[in-house]
Design a binder for these strands. Structure first.
Lengths: 176, 176
DNA sequence: CCCTTTTCACCTAGGTGGTAAGAT
DNA sequence: ATCTTACCACCTAGGTGAAAAGGG
């Protein structure tokens, strides 16, 4: 399914006339598997509303390290810079045999999203300059635990309030 | 609405590595407006099944001459040549004030679709070579009369049989 | 009478969380 | 007990011709 919340980035400093590819990948934060600790809740609240993550042991074998190219790639620097770039089409799966090209992650493991900018070098021997033609950006505040179902009621509510496809689950104004 | 049947073309002879833009426009075939002559029909047949076109007078004022770029433009010659190129996203309207960028035509007038191939010249002063960097193709068998509703029962049936969005109107196997 | 416009039920295509059943 | 899977009703978004309504 699509990743939520969506990774979005504002870009500065590109050459407006040059072509760039934008892509993302995900690297494990640690070598651990996590689990939930659920505590008794007062009536009317979800059990996982007051839960926390515990280490549950060693990580599962690493998944194939796929990348997701922003579907607008390649595009000019001017195009990328003129508005926030949103990776809302990026999809995650836990299916190791996935053949839709989605990003494969282990559920209950922690990941660090990475954002890569690749300059499309017009020179004939551009392969030689591959090293200097890309740059990677890591925002530690975007780390997350992959799950098969939301483990946090507030995330569920945020999604329901903000995503038009979940309108069926709204029971009040999305502005609230 | 989308044009039906769809204009499709198979391309040969491009430079596989060069970029091309593909586009279509429509020119009037003549300066006439047409109307239907309907003849009495046996029960169970549509009145317009056995009808024909009559000249109904001079053409209405010409519509704005818009063009439709194939949405995959620009793309490499190799990409365009590897399969049939289909202009199935092309939309026609009779609304002179249309601001969706659709092709504006006069209903009950005859049109000739034209197909244009534009070579994207990488040279700095490419504007100077505009004349030699495009080529136009006209297939007279694709001429048609624009309408606001189908005037031929067999076209209706062909559309119902071939377009997945019209499945609701099928009453037999589409293979028939 | 002939054509155009509007509306509508019915599709395709695909993104939601809920829920119940399954797995470990 | 906890997590995963499969399915579902319910959405968005938009492409169909039929039919009714509108217009000259």
């Amino acid at each position: 399914r699509r990743m939520f919340p969506t990774f979005q980035v504002k870009i500065f400093g590109m050459d407006p006339m040059a072509d760039y590819m934008l892509l993302m990948d995900f690297v494990p934060v640690d070598d651990k598997r996590y689990r939930q600790l659920r505590v008794p809740s007062p009536p009317g609240r979800y059990a996982f509303h007051s839960s926390s993550w515990l280490v549950a042991g060693k990580a599962d074998p690493a998944t194939p390290g796929r990348v997701h190219y922003h579907p607008d790639s390649p595009a000019k620097g001017a195009q990328w810079m003129k508005q926030i770039v949103s990776f809302d089409k990026l999809k995650l799966t836990n299916n190791l045999l996935d053949d839709n090209g989605h990003i494969i992650l282990n559920s209950m493991h922690r990941y660090q999203p990475r954002f890569h900018v690749v300059y499309v070098d017009p020179r004939k021997d551009s392969e030689k300059y591959a090293e200097e033609n890309f740059k990677t950006f890591v925002f530690e505040e975007t780390r997350f635990t992959a799950v098969t179902a939301y483990q946090n009621h507030r995330i569920t509510q945020l999604k329901i309030a903000s995503n038009p496809f979940a309108k069926g689950f709204r029971d009040c104004d999305p502005e609230d």
